[in-house]
Design a protein around this nucleic acid. Structure first.
Length: 947
RNA sequence: GCGGGUAUGGCGGAAUUGGCAGACGCACUAGACUUAGGAUCUAGCGCCGCAAGGCUUGCAGGUUCAACUCCUGUUACCCGCACCA
C-alpha cells in the first residue's frame, strides 16, 4: 500500500476531478443544507478547533449524501476586519492582498483534511461581487427607514479608533483588543434592531437551537414587562415619567432617581438651587468608564435636586428627586421611582442618604399551629420588639411559661397606639425595664397565619419589628405572678437562634445580621390602600388597571436590546452606499452604480478625530448627487464586520448570480439552513444579527423563511495537553498540518471525533491520537481475512446490523465518539474470526467512510470490493436482526447482583423466575429467608426480594 | 445578584432514559514475538480484601424491588448577562 499521504492526495484529486461534492438543484432529491461558520482567514492558519467542527459536519454531510440526500455543504471566507487591516498598515500593502494570501493557506489546509465542501460555491465577503449585494441589502434597510443616522453617545475604542456596537463592547471592553471603551458622541448609522426584539424572541420557537443558545439570546434581548407611571412635578406643570416592573410597590416610593443625562436636569436648572453640585456630579459620572460604573456597584452615589420634587400620583405625597449614575439614560425612561423596602439598589441608596423606607409588601408565614378550617378568622396588628442590652452584646427575650414560647417581646397594638407606642408599653409591661432611650422601627414587616388556641380563633397578624435601646437596666418590681406568666431573659447574640423557638423570629435574626435588606419576594400588600391584602401579581394587575383608568400610567414592555450601531471608522469594511447632498439630504447610491468599491490607495490608518480613513481620499469623497446632480459627498464610514456574515448562507445557494443577491429558484429549493454549526461566542452577536437581517428580508418578501437556521449546534473548544487553553504564548498550539503529515488526515479526523462529547471541551492528547491511528491500521490489516462472498458472516450478522443502526443514529446526533466506539467493538470481533466476507468488510468501510474517507476509499478500491464509496449507498439494517434469541441477564437478590442466567426470548416470566431461583449463588443468598417478591423484567433483570 | 451548564477509575469518556456502573480508547502491569516501532499479539486493570465479601457515579437526605438516571437540600467549578428599575 502506498503511503498515507499519497493515498489521501489521490482521493482528494478524485473527488475534485469528479465534482463529487458539487451540489446541483435536483427536484427529485430531498435537500439538506449543512452550514459551518465560515472562518476569518487569519495569518495563523487553521486551528485544530476548526478541524473539529469541519470534520463533524463533513461526516454528517458525507453520510447524508450516501443516504441519497442532495447535500449543500459550502465554504467561504469572512475576510473584512481588523487583523488584515493591521497587517496592511504595517506592510503598506492593500488588505485584499493579505486576505488573498491567507485564504490560499486556509484552503490548502482544509483540502488536506478531505472536507467535502462544495468549492464551486466559494466566495469571500470582501469580493466586490459579494459586497455589492451586502450594500444592496443595506439600501433596502435604508429605504424602509430601518437605517437611520443618529447622534448619540456610543462606545468608542480609543485603541482601534472606532465606534462599537453594544454587542461588540460587552462588559465595557472592546471585543477586539480588550481596551476599556469610552463614551463619545458621534453620528452613526443605526439599524432598527430593537423593533425586532419581540420577533427575535418569538422566532426561537421555530428553531432547534440548544437551550443555552436560546437563553443567551433571550437574556441579551432582555425583555421585561412593567409599567410607565407619570409623576407630576410640584413646582411646574410637567410630569416625570418613570418605568418600573413593580408598580405594585407604588405606595412605598420614598424618592425618585433620574439618570445624570436626563433632559430635565437642564430643562429645570432654573428651579434647582444646587445646580453647581448637580453639574459637578454629572461631569464626574460622564468621565467614569462603563467599567467603573459597573465595578462600584455597591457604593451608591448621587445628588439631591434641591427645589424640584415630584408628587406620588396614588397618595399625593411629595417626593424628593435625586440624580445618580445607577440609573441609565438608555433604558426605560431614564428615570425610576425608588422603593427602598423592595429593591436592593434603592435600599442601598436610601441607607446611604438617610431616606425613609416604607414596607408595602410583607412576607406571609404559616405558624406552627396551622389555621383550622371553620374557625373564626381574626386579624391583629402586632409588634415584635428586639431590646438591646445597654452594655453587653445581649438581647432581651421572654419565656412565656404557659405556652412554652421563647421569643422576642411581643404584643398587640391597641387602637389608639402606633407601633412605637405599643413597643414602649409592651417592654415596660412584660419586662419591667423603664429606661427606654430609643425606639427604631425596622423596615421589616411580616405576616403570620396560625390558629390561636388560647382564643380558639384563626389569626392573621401583621408584625412590625422594632429595635429598642435601653439607657440603663433600671427596672420596676415585677410580681412573682407576673414572672410566672412571662419571664424576661437576657440572651447573648450567639445563643439567640437556639433560644428562640419561633421560625419567624429567627428570620428577624437573619435580617439583623445581614445589616438589613430589601424584601423582593412575594407576599401580601400592606400600607397600600386599594392593594392591601393582594399578592404581588394581583397587585400589579390591579394597579395597572387603576393607573390606566386614571390616565396616569400604562402597561409597558421594555427590552435591553438596542439598535445596531452599523458604522465603523475604519478602512477595511464595506463602504456604506450613501451620498450626502446639501439639497437632498442622504441619497442612496443608485443600484446600477453598486458596488461602491473600496478605493485602491495606501492609507489605511484610523484617525484620532473619529473619521474613517476614507474621508481623506478626495476622489472617493467628492461625487455628485444622484438626485439633483449637484456636488455631494459620500459617506466615509464602513460597515461592521458582522455585515457580510449576516446573509452569507443565502449567497451560497446561488453564489454567481449577478442579477440578484440570490435567485428565487435557488431560494425555493434550498430554503433554510438545516444544520448550522458555530462557536458559542457568537450566540449573542453573529447569530442575533443574522436572524434579525433574515427576518427583515422575510418581511420584505425577499426570502421564504422568517428563521434562517433550523438546528444550531456548537462544538466545544479543544484545549492543550494538561487542560489549558491553546495559545501561542504557552507554545501548546497544535498545527493540523503537522498532524496530517505525520499521522494522516484520517487519523486526525478520527481522533477529533473520538475525543469526547462533541459539544463539550476536550483536551488534546497525542497518545489518544496514536490510539486512533492504531485503530485505522487494524482496519487495514483486517483485509487479510477477507474472502469473497456477497453475504454477511453468520457469526457477526447481527452485530453488523446493530452497528449499522448505532452508527446511523449516533452520527445524526453528534455522538461520533460512541459511533466510533461501536465500530471498534465490531472490529475487535472481526479480528478474532478466521475470516470475514467481502460484504462484511465493505459494509464496515462504508460505515467508517464519513470519518475516515480516504483510507476507506482506498481499501475499497485495492481489494476490489465495489464502486467508490462516494458513489455507493449507505447500508441499511433489519430490525428483526437486532435482537438475540438468547440473552444473559442478571439476577439480583435484594438489589445486589448474585448471578447471571441465560434466558431465551420465548421464556415467559415463570420460566425465567424458575431459572433465576435455580442459580447456585442465588440459592446461597436466599437460603433460610422468606421470598417476599420476585420481579421479572423481561430481557433485562430479575430481582428477588427476601427477608 | 440573575440565567444556563457540569461533576462518573490514574486520564478522555460510556450507560438502550429507572434495570449487571465503568462500554470504547489512553495510560499502566505481566507474558509472547520480532523486521527494535508511533510496533504487533495474549492476559490483567474502579477502591478495600488472601478470599468470601464489602464499598463506589461531588456531598446529605428521600421515593423505589431497583437510582449516575427521578425528587429535596447542599458544595465546587465553568459559561453567559449584570446598578436594565
Amino acid at each position: 500500500m502506498d503511503s498515507i499521504q499519497k493515498i489521501e492526495k489521490k482521493w482528494q484529486k478524485y473527488w475534485k476531478d469528479h465534482h463529487t461534492f458539487e451540489a446541483k438543484i435536483d427536484k427529485n432529491k430531498e435537500k439538506y443544507y449543512y452550514l459551518v461558520e465560515f472562518p476569518y482567514p487569519s495569518g495563523a492558519g487553521l486551528h485544530v478547533g476548526h478541524v473539529r467542527s469541519y470534520t463533524a459536519l463533513d461526516a454528517m454531510a458525507r453520510k447524508k449524501r450516501l443516504m441519497g440526500y442532495n447535500v449543500l455543504f459550502p465554504m467561504g471566507w469572512d475576510a473584512f476586519g481588523a487583523p488584515a487591516e493591521q497587517y496592511a498598515i504595517k506592510n503598506h500593502i492593500h488588505p485584499s492582498a493579505a486576505v488573498k494570501e491567507n485564504i490560499k493557506t486556509f484552503k490548502a489546509q482544509i483540502e488536506d483534511l478531505g472536507i467535502s465542501f462544495d468549492w464551486s460555491r466559494e466566495f469571500s465577503t470582501t469580493d466586490p461581487e459579494y459586497y455589492k449585494w451586502t450594500q444592496w441589502q443595506f439600501l433596502q434597510f435604508f429605504k424602509k427607514g430601518m437605517a437611520y443616522k443618529a447622534k448619540k453617545n456610543i462606545n468608542w475604542c480609543p485603541k482601534c479608533k472606532t465606534g462599537l456596537s453594544n454587542e461588540d463592547s460587552s462588559g465595557g471592553v472592546c471585543e477586539r483588543c480588550g481596551t476599556q471603551v469610552e463614551q463619545r458622541e458621534k453620528e452613526q448609522w443605526m439599524l432598527r434592531m430593537s423593533d425586532y426584539a419581540e420577533d427575535l424572541i418569538e422566532g426561537l420557537k421555530d428553531t432547534d437551537f440548544q437551550e443555552r443558545t436560546k437563553t443567551a439570546q433571550i437574556n441579551w434581548i432582555g425583555k421585561s414587562v412593567g409599567a410607565e407611571v407619570d409623576f407630576k412635578l410640584k413646582q411646574v406643570d410637567e410630569k416625570l415619567t418613570i418605568y418600573t416592573t413593580r408598580p405594585d410597590t407604588l405606595f412605598g416610593v420614598t424618592f425618585m432617581v433620574i439618570a445624570p443625562e436626563h433632559p430635565y436636569v437642564d430643562l429645570y436648572s432654573g428651579l434647582i438651587s444646587n445646580m453647581n453640585e448637580v453639574i459637578d456630579y454629572r461631569e464626574q459620572a460622564n468621565k467614569k468608564t462603563e467599567f467603573e460604573r459597573t465595578q462600584l456597584v455597591k457604593d451608591k452615589t448621587g445628588v439631591k435636586l434641591e427645589g424640584l420634587t415630584a408628587i406620588n400620583p396614588v397618595n399625593g405625597k411629595e417626593i424628593p428627586i435625586y440624580i445618580s449614575d445607577y440609573v441609565m439614560m438608555n433604558y426605560g425612561t431614564g428615570a425610576i421611582m425608588a422603593v427602598p423596602a423592595h429593591d436592593q439598589r434603592d435600599y442601598d441608596f436610601a441607607k446611604k442618604f438617610g431616606i425613609d423606607i416604607i414596607p408595602v409588601l410583607a412576607p406571609v408565614y404559616l405558624g406552627d399551629d396551622a389555621p383550622v378550617e371553620g374557625k373564626k378568622n381574626t386579624e391583629r396588628e402586632v409588634v415584635v420588639v428586639v431590646v438591646k442590652h445597654p452594655k453587653e452584646d445581649q438581647y432581651l427575650c421572654v419565656r412565656y411559661q404557659k405556652f412554652g414560647w421563647q421569643s422576642f417581646i411581643m404584643g398587640g397594638i391597641e387602637d389608639d397606639e402606633d407601633p412605637e407606642g405599643a413597643a414602649r408599653r409592651e417592654v415596660m409591661e412584660e419586662t419591667g425595664y423603664t429606661d427606654i432611650k430609643n425606639v427604631q422601627s425596622l423596615s421589616f414587616v411580616f405576616q403570620e397565619k396560625f390558629y390561636a388556641a388560647h382564643k380558639d380563633v384563626n389569626r392573621l397578624t401583621t408584625n412590625h419589628v422594632l429595635v429598642v435601646e435601653l439607657g440603663s437596666l433600671e427596672q420596676k418590681e415585677m410580681s412573682e405572678e407576673e414572672k410566672n406568666i412571662q419571664e424576661p431573659v437576657w440572651v447573648s447574640k450567639k445563643e439567640l437562634r437556639d433560644f428562640l423557638n419561633f421560625e419567624t423570629h429567627k428570620k428577624i435574626c437573619d435580617f439583623l445580621e445581614s445589616g438589613g435588606q430589601a424584601f423582593i419576594e412575594d407576599g401580601t400588600h400592606i400600607n397600600s390602600d386599594l392593594l392591601n391584602g393582594l399578592n404581588k401579581q394581583e397587585a400589579i394587575d390591579t394597579i395597572i388597571g387603576y393607573l390606566e383608568e386614571q390616565g396616569i400610567g400604562h402597561k409597558k414592555t421594555n427590552y435591553k436590546l438596542q439598535d445596531w450601531i452599523f458604522t465603523r471608522q475604519r478602512f477595511w469594511g464595506e463602504p456604506i452606499p450613501l451620498i450626502y447632498c446639501e439639497e437632498c439630504g442622504w441619497v442612496p447610491v443608485p443600484e446600477e452604480d453598486l458596488p461602491v468599491l473600496l478605493p485602491d490607495v495606501a492609507e489605511y490608518e484610523p484617525t484620532d478625530d473619529g473619521e474613517s480613513p476614507l474621508a481623506r481620499i478626495d476622489e472617493f469623497v467628492n461625487t455628485t448627487c444622484p438626485h439633483c446632480g449637484k456636488p455631494a459627498k459620500r459617506e466615509t464610514d464602513t460597515m461592521p464586520n458582522w455585515a457580510g456574515s449576516s446573509w452569507y448562507w443565502l449567497r451560497y445557494m446561488d453564489p454567481h448570480n449577478d442579477q440578484e443577491f440570490v435567485g428565487k429558484d435557488a431560494l425555493k429549493y434550498w430554503g433554510k439552513v438545516d444544520w448550522y454549526n458555530g462557536g458559542m461566542e457568537h450566540a449573542t452577536r453573529h447569530l442575533l444579527y443574522a436572524r434579525f437581517w433574515n427576518q427583515f428580508l422575510y418581511n420584505e418578501g425577499l426570502v421564504p423563511n422568517k428563521e434562517p437556521f433550523k438546528v444550531r449546534a456548537s462544538h466545544g473548544m479543544i484545549l492543550g495537553e494538561g487542560g489549558v487553553k491553546m495559545s501561542k504564548s504557552l507554545g501548546n498550539v497544535i498545527n493540523p498540518d503537522d498532524i496530517v503529515s505525520s499521522y494522516g488526515a484520517d487519523a486526525l479526523r478520527t481522533y477529533e471525533m473520538f475525543i469526547g462529547d462533541y459539544e463539550k471541551e476536550a483536551t488534546w492528547s497525542e497518545q489518544g491520537l496514536i490510539g486512533c491511528r492504531r485503530f485505522l491500521d487494524k482496519v487495514i490489516r483486517l483485509a487479510d481475512k477477507v474472502v469473497e462472498k456477497q453475504e454477511y458472516s453468520k457469526e457477526i450478522e447481527k452485530d453488523i446490523h446493530r452497528t449499522v443502526k448505532k452508527v446511523t443514529e449516533d452520527m445524526d446526533s453528534l455522538k461520533f465518539n460512541t459511533a466510533i466506539s461501536a465500530l471498534m467493538i465490531l472490529l475487535n470481533k472481526m479480528e478474532k474470526m478466521d475470516s470475514i466476507t467481502s460484504m462484511d468488510y465493505r459494509t464496515y468501510l462504508i460505515l467508517l467512510n464519513p470519518i475516515a474517507p480516504h483510507l476507506t476509499e482506498e481499501l475499497n478500491e485495492i481489494h476490489k470490493l465495489g464502486n467508490p464509496i462516494c458513489e455507493s449507498s449507505w447500508p441499511t439494517y433489519d430490525d428483526a436482526m437486532l435482537e438475540d434469541s438468547e440473552k444473559e441477564i442478571a439476577v439480583q437478590v435484594n438489589g445486589k447482583v448474585r448471578a447471571t442466567i441465560t434466558v431465551s426470548m420465548d421464556d415467559d416470566d415463570k420460566e425465567i423466575e424458575k431459572k433465576a431461583m435455580a442459580a447456585e449463588n442465588v440459592q446461597k443468598h436466599i437460603e433460610g429467608k422468606d421470598v417476599v417478591k420476585v420481579i421479572v423484567i423481561k430481557g433485562k433483570i430479575v430481582n428477588i426480594v427476601v427477608k
